[in-house]
Nucleic acid binder design. Structure first.
Lengths: 344, 344
DNA sequence: CAGTCATCCGCTCATCTGAGCATTCCGAGG
DNA sequence: CCTCGGAATGCTCAGATGAGCGGATGACTG
């Protein structure tokens, strides 16, 4: 058992760590009497023929050894220890790590993280005047989880294009709209594609008065809230029809670990394909990097690599994620692996 | 969630039970600060802007609601609450319920229960002068788990025949021998078949001077330690070659839920097949029923029904089992089911 | 609208518990 | 054999905590 897994999971017992075996049995017995039966340490001492101080020490040892595991099982539960560790290690301004205790499906975990993001946004003080948002499955969930009146009069700006080529109805703009509506604020949407075929087209679209106005607003937003996507067939950009699975596979070969506001980045946090990036409409990553409040919402097993890319390269100041991702971020072995994979 | 599952598993959280939703969130937050961060209730009160008494109440509610789950994860851990519930409900003299927390295989659970039985036997005071034992996979494990010197000079008597027809080496007698050896005592074995083809043969075997002596000793043993087997293809009596799978299937049709010291019983605790029973060598169930100390060791999912038969019919005074079996014994719905199955 | 009841809240007080310290125990080494 | 050092033990004491109580609050009823 690593100290890490203890930090995250609350600790699976692994025998023979710091305790003499007869003390170990006593500790188990004491823990049963204390936590299950609710006896006092004094009573337990009488039963086990030891002093109450020894009982206290055994209980403390039982907790550190992982014999006694205390878990907070609730959809809104957070992992405070993991939060502190990740925050400190990557120098974040703030962090929320949602607990996966008791989740039965990846979807449920995703929802929990979305809820955590909504809670974070609701509690954010001072509330931002203007908030730049991206779109996607995660952002959609965040918008859904936000309570009506989460803020008052926030200007919500869509920071990257997201008109779906495959589905009818603009779910990308809808996300920004919902977030704005629930804060009794105004939305500024970008009803344009995420990626265009030619750089020239992208340039001319950006010159459009209305579009340029929104992009300018986006560039001056006080805070950003965005998610990240996987680099794979499940990418939202593949589902929306902007990229083929072959194209994404090509990006992966170039080292892509996922996309952030429509731009595919490598482990170094920079776009892996300059040409593709030049055809992508939306806020440049530099702007997010320079922001004082860049809130990244990243959940799920497939996003560990992109989460790492975000936090190691200053692409977010606030991270909202799940405990498994947090564990991956704290796991040095996994870090080495990513690096070696990139090297190879 | 039933109160039962809470009792056994330590409680999976099921939202909205006795708490107002804003208190629920406060409780979660308080639990995080208290159990994960180790803050005092006073500090938590300051952070959450509530009094320390409210914090204490929230924490108490969080525990009863199952938001905070405290689990003792250790091979030797017991389930004290479940023990009390089962003991009271079935009027047992004593009980041990081993925890299945963290087990990865049915084998591991079986071993834990065997270990628990060995621990119980070791701690039994006064130690019995003579101990009647059965045989089987479970009993073999119990014998293996017993520490050298678990008692001093106990007479161990095999209470039912168990000469295997399929394997070489008498594992049944070996079990009794090991238990006796480890107590620096003497063993009295029954190197005879468990079930004979004709009642007459059984009678004549019983008349044999040596056999009769052992059986007489068995009948006068101070305590009994035995396991129970499933009524199915996995029965030890099938593996040993005494019964065919077809014969066992026939017994099941007659309502057999399992075997105890070689005798197949129904939910009523009585042999389901009088003829078969008359060909079975060993202590009659009445003797065990009349004993002051009859320790049954029953573990595993397949043995819930036979465990129920044992405890409902006074076939044991002490039960050593796992928490899942205990849960089944406390589950009234399951009880109804068994009864209706028997009726149909 | 007043009365009733249940609930929630903050408080007192007794108890429980953990931190810190002196003492004892035990094995290693002289 | 004695001495030493480290660990385990038992104790003091202050701080933390839970049980129980009376008052406030708010919903429901006649």
């Amino acid at each position: 058992m690593t100290a890490l897994s203890l930090l995250i999971s609350g600790g699976l017992f692994y025998p023979g760590e710091h305790m003499n075996s007869s003390d170990e049995l006593l500790a188990v017995r004491a823990a049963e009497l204390y936590y299950d039966e609710g006896r006092t340490q004094d009573e337990i001492g009488a039963v086990l023929h030891i002093t109450r101080w020894k009982v206290g020490r055994l209980l403390a040892q039982a907790r550190t050894a992982g014999i006694v595991r205390i878990e907070i099982v609730h959809p809104r539960a957070r992992r405070v220890l993991a939060e502190q560790a990740v925050k400190k290690r990557y120098g974040l301004n703030d962090i929320v790590v949602a607990s996966s205790a008791g989740v039965s499906s990846p979807d449920e975990l995703q929802r929990r993280v979305a809820q955590a993001a909504a809670d974070y946004l609701t509690g954010l003080r001072p509330a931002p005047q203007t908030l730049g948002v991206s779109w996607g499955r995660t952002m959609h969930d965040v918008a859904a989880c936000l309570p009506r009146g989460w803020a008052h009069g926030v200007g919500v700006v869509q920071i990257n294009g997201g008109l779906s080529l495959t589905k009818t109805g603009d779910t990308a703009s809808a996300t920004a709209l919902v977030i704005a509506q629930k804060a009794a604020g105004s939305a500024h949407v970008l009803p344009i594609p995420a990626i265009l075929e030619h750089t020239a087209t992208k340039r001319s679209i950006e010159r459009d008065r209305a579009i340029a106005g929104v992009l300018d607003r986006a560039a001056h937003a006080e805070a950003y809230l965005f998610s990240a996507g996987v680099a794979g067939d499940d990418s939202a950009l593949v589902h929306s029809g902007y990229l083929s699975t072959a194209e994404v596979a090509g990006l992966v070969r170039k080292g892509a670990v996922g996309d952030v506001v429509g731009r595919f980045i490598g482990a170094d946090g920079a776009p892996v394909d300059a040409e593709l990036d030049s055809r992508t409409v939306g806020l440049p990553l530099e702007r997010i990097k320079a922001s004082d409040t860049a809130i990244a919402v990243v959940a799920g097993e497939g996003k560990h690599a992109v989460a790492r890319a975000l936090v190691t390269n200053g692409l977010c100041t606030v991270l909202i994620t799940d405990d498994l991702t947090a564990a991956a971020l704290l796991d040095d072995a996994a870090a080495e692996e990513t690096i070696s994979e990139c090297a190879s």
